[in-house]
């Protein structure tokens, strides 16, 4: 029975690995699903908002180390909140200056935000340098948790998982249980009619975009616990994230969760049998094949056009 428990331990750790990938994907995809699913805007600079969150966390960590060492163990919570607001504020500005002028031309938003992402990447490079940086993790995030001898689960993974559950819950509450969420959903279903009943759709759009960017910022903060941050850290994930959103069905949060889960688990399961790059090729190809058979994604709500 020895081999069985060993196999179980490996399976559990591999499954947990998949869960970590799932969390980063989901945190990124949540912001994107709000922006793309609810507003129909393709934000190619979404990855850069993640990078903003990651750099914010890094700056907070450096500042704490230098000026307020006693705050060390708790700085991470402040960093998460700051990441949310800084990324959200920049998102608000971007919507005001750029996106709001392009709502009639979705393909053009894609190109314009790609230009924005180039500018932002170069700005990161000018400010923080081309080298990757990493925030100093508080002690309680390091090390691992061992439920049995053979199983070894890293604590930072657990933390990211907790954060993901919390963020998902909050977004669900905001979208489905608040007045603002009601306005957002009304605007998605029928913009003209929403305007007629007195919803300020412009403001709703701006807040939605800012919220989506803020969530990406939080994803960035979570990202620092797993890897180091470089100017192009966020752009590496952008295509995967878009596929997650499209695969899940653009305007369904439940679909986003389900698709992030299946893509992440498929990826890490296949990595067990073949090289990482081939696992990625197979996962992405499978997603595209399924999308060809079912273009509306896994879950979709019917909207009258």
């Amino acid at each position: 029975m020895e081999w069985l428990s060993e196999f179980g331990a490996i399976a559990a750790m591999q499954g947990f690995n998949g869960l970590s990938v799932f969390c980063v994907l989901l945190l990124m995809a949540l912001g994107l699903a709000i922006i793309f699913g609810q507003m129909g805007v393709i934000n190619m600079a979404h990855g850069e908002f993640l990078t903003i969150g990651a750099y914010t966390t890094y700056v907070v960590s450096v500042l704490t180390e230098q000026y307020a060492a006693f705050f060390g163990p708790y700085y991470f919570f402040l960093a998460i909140v700051l990441s949310f607001f800084i990324a959200g504020a920049i998102g608000w500005l971007v919507e005001w200056a750029m996106i709001s002028k392009l709502y009639q031309r979705p393909l053009d938003t894609l190109l314009a935000t790609w230009g924005l992402s180039l500018v932002m990447q170069q700005a990161f490079r000018s400010i923080f340098g081309a080298r990757e940086v990493s925030a100093t993790l508080p002690e309680w995030l390091m090390g691992s948790w061992n439920p049995t001898e053979a199983i070894d689960i890293p604590r930072n993974g657990l933390f990211v998982m907790g954060l993901t559950v919390l963020m998902t819950g909050m977004i669900f509450l905001m979208l489905y249980r608040s007045r603002w969420g009601l306005q957002v959903r009304a605007t998605v279903q029928n913009r003209v009619m929403s305007r007629a009943v007195g919803i300020n759709t412009k403001r709703v759009d701006r807040m939605t975009f800012a919220l989506g960017c803020g969530v990406a910022g939080v994803a960035g903060a979570a990202f620092t616990t797993i890897g180091s941050t470089g100017p192009t850290a966020g752009s590496l994930y952008i295509v995967d994230t878009f596929l997650v959103v499209v695969f899940g069905g653009a305007s369904s949060l439940l679909g986003t969760i389900a698709s992030a889960f299946s893509i992440a688990q498929a990826q890490s399961l296949m990595e067990f049998f073949m090289s990482g790059s081939m696992a990625k090729v197979f996962t992405l190809s499978a997603v595209i094949l399924i999308l060809m058979l079912r273009p509306q994604g896994l879950f979709s709500i019917k909207v009258r056009k």
């Binding site: 295509v239 878009f242 190809s285």
Partner: peptide, 18 residues
């Protein structure tokens, strides 16, 4: 299957990545 616009762009982009 009448997949157009934005979806087509994203899928072609994913093919480039693959």
């Amino acid at each position: 299957r009448r997949v157009g616009d934005v979806y087509f762009s994203i899928v072609t982009q994913a093919i480039a990545l693959i």
